[in-house]
Every structure is written in C-alpha cells, then in structure tokens.
Design a protein around this nucleic acid. Structure first.
Lengths: 129, 129, 129, 129
DNA sequence: GTGGTCTAGACCACG
DNA sequence: GTGGTCTAGACCACC
C-alpha cells in the first residue's frame, strides 16, 4: 500500500496516516484479518517518528478499525470496512466542501470556480493514470 | 467588509484573516488608500487578541499588500490589487487541488468524486444566493 | 533650508528633524538670532504632524539650541553654533561607526567593504553636485 | 556562532537576530542542514524573550532561509546561502549609504567626511584583529 | 525536547 | 487614537 505524507501540510501527520489507512481499508486494499505494517516499519517508510505512527494506530484502535494482536502487530477488524467506507466519504466530502466554501467566499466568479475545479479534477485524475 | 474566523479550523486564525483581506482586496471591496479596520477594532469584532490581528497585518505588510501609516493605521498599497488577485487564485486553486488529490487518493470511484463535487458546488452556491 | 524626512526609516521623524536643524546651524545656514520656520509651517512643508515638529523644537530648546520668543516663534541661540558643530560631528561619526561595525560583523572581506564604501561615497557625492 | 544584540539600538532586536543569522549563513559559518540553536536556547543566550527569537526565525522561514523540522528545530535551507549572500551585501550597502547620505546632508566638508570614514574604518578593523 | 499559535498586557513613537 | 516591539506564559502537535 502506498502512503503519502506531507510534512508541510497544516493537517497533523498522524491524521494524514489515519486517513490513508481508512482509505486503504475502505477501498479493500487492506482487508479484515490482514496485519498492517508495524509501527517501526511504517515509520521508516514514511521517514516519520515512530511515536507519530503509533498515535495513528492508537486512534484507529480506539475507533474499532484496528485491533492489537499481542506480539503480532495490528490487525484490521471485521467491522473496519463498513466503518471506513462511511468515514471515507465524510472525510472527502468535508474537504471538498471546505475548499468550495472558501472559493465562494473569495468572490471569484462562479464560472472561474467551475473552471478551476474542472482543471484540477482533470489534472489530478491524469496524474494517477 | 465581513470577516468570518473559525477558531476550530486547522488553519491559523492569523492566516484566515490574511486570506480574507486578500479576498477583499482582490474583489475590490477594499481599495488602495486606507479603509482597513484598525488592529484593535478588528480584534474586538473577531473576538480575537489584538496581537493575532497585528500578526496578519504585519505579514501582509511584509508582502507589500499593506503599509503602515504611523498613527493613522494600515493602508492598502497601490500594487495590492494586482498581488491579491494573483494570490487569491493560487489560494483557491491550491485548496481545491488538495481536496481533489485526497479524494482521488481515497480510491473513491471517479464518478462518485464528480458527484460529490457537483453536489457540494451546488450546495455552496445555493447558500450564498 | 532644505529638509528631507523619511517616514520609513527606523529613526523617529522628530529625531530626523532635530538632526537636520543641528546640521543647518552647524553649517551656518541658520544663524543665531534668526527665527526658524514655525511649527505649522514646517509641519506643512514636511507633511508631518505638527506635534512631531513641536517635539523636535522642544528637545532642541531643552538642549539650549533654540529658545522660544513669545509670540515670535523659535530663535537660534547664541551658543547654538558651538553646540551644533560638536553634535554634528558626533552624530555623523556615530552613524558611520555603526555602519562599518555592522559591515565588519557581516564577515564581508575587507576589500569588499572598502569597495562598497568608496562606491557609495562616490555615489552620494555625485548626487549632491 | 556568536550573537550580539543591543537592546538600546533603534533596530528591533528580532531584526538584529535576522541580520546576524543572514551574516552567519552568508559567511558559511552556518551551512545547509541543521545547526541553528533552538528558540529557547538562543533566547537564554541573548537574555531575550523566546517569542522575540521565534519572530526572527519565523520571518527567515517566510523568506525561505530557514525551514522548521517539527520537533527537531530549524534547518538552514539549500537555497539559503545564495539568498543570504545577496541580502548581506544589500544590508551592508544600505546601511553605509544611509550613513554617508547623512554625512553629506550635514554639510561637513568632503575631506572631513573622508577623514572620518577612514578613521572609523581603521578603528573598526583594528578591533577585530 | 522542538517550533507554532494564541492570549494578555506593557511601553514606545507617532498623529 | 494608531501600529510596532517586547515580555510572560499558556497550550498544541510533533520528535
């Protein structure tokens, strides 16, 4: 699974990790019963402090998405996919809503906003192909 | 001019103020020559500490958007409208790009993303009418 | 007499006025017994607040350089030229010293500093011819 | 690296810190990759409030000279040396220009100015040997 | 431990 | 009254 952490974002790193795990589970890349990378492993991969990864795991464990298997690392729970599919949509929707709210607040003309959205949508979709 | 500050946002308050001033100048609500509320005034209006407002003014002054007139308050510079129109577009574009990047990273199907965008765009435009 | 006030300088305006009056007296442009421009007059000329001019006059009066002639404005005292010639040299020397001290502290090579000094000296002398 | 802050100078403390960091980077004493004292450390060393140091760091960060590494401190950027060498020369040149401009405005004879400059240059160079 | 943000309140220069 | 600077001290996210 691919992770992408931006240390210059105003969004805390541990939250970025949480979101990406949620996305991975929601999309089926991570399935119930699968064990996810260890704290240390992921920390190395993301060049991030292990505490930061551990915090992300902890929060997901609090929400019932992950569960600790002693000595074996974290495992995706059975209920995780359902939880994550809901959360994913809410996260994405919320972020889009905020961006558009700001766009409207900026008093840019509606056509300009629509143009920007179309442009960026196109751009971002092209990049992932 | 209307200001709207959210203290629960991950975006720092002083940056929210900066952005809204940029939007105000870009849209022509604030014109070159003084018209900006004083630090103390705006602080009361936003129920925020004067230093927080001063920080926003200071940064805009560094960027050449505002200039301090000793004893008289801050004034919008002559170059401000040009600077701000550019910055406005970049701010809005950047925020939209991030939201869409995350949406794509979430592995939501493209049609679903487009549906969400259309829905929220509609919603946000309706709110301002 | 010519005055040049820079509102963007870190040196307070009233102090700039003080210095320029000292320079005027030291150089003999302003002589003992001469009445200098009124607060209002000078304030208009410099597009500066009358209080600022008044403060400069007050400080010079404290130092025995100017004296108030009731109803007639400020007058240059008999001792002023002597005081001002001393002060002038000290002011100029001090400012030069600070500039050079900073230049040396910046670790610019000595030849580079000398080059800069020569360049700026040339430039500033050319401007006044 | 040595720092020297004068609290009685008309130049704000945070700006003195900025200039000295610029000088340090321009001269190669501070190199890209971390080596900068922490906010708290430097504050103690200069017997200055941590916020004052933080302000200096913040401004240098805005200018692309420093970058914050969360939890690790500030780091000199790769572009910093180039930026700082340019800025150093401008800072020094500007200060020299102002001093000489004032000297000329004071109507001191040219030879006298040159004498003062030579004297102070000599003096300041002797001090650092 | 680090920097980032914010509050509170002081003093100064200037109008 | 205005902005600019500085101090003091709080809380947060992150290492």
């Amino acid at each position: 699974m691919h992770f992408d952490v931006r240390s210059d974002s105003p969004i805390p790193i541990y939250e970025q990790i949480i979101n990406q795990l949620i996305f991975g589970i929601a999309s089926g890349v991570l399935e119930p019963g699968m064990s996810i990378p260890s704290v240390r492993e992921l920390a190395v991969q993301l060049t991030v402090n292990p505490n930061t990864v551990a915090r992300a795991f902890q929060k997901l464990s609090d929400r019932g998405v992950l569960t600790a298997r002693r000595g074996l690392g974290m495992e995706v729970t059975a209920e995780a996919p359902m939880i994550c599919r809901n959360e994913r949509q809410e996260i994405v929707r919320q972020r889009i809503r905020e961006a558009l709210r700001e766009a409207v607040a900026s008093a840019l003309p509606a056509e300009e906003i629509e143009r920007l959205v179309a442009e960026e949508l196109h751009r971002v979709q092209a990049r992932t192909k």
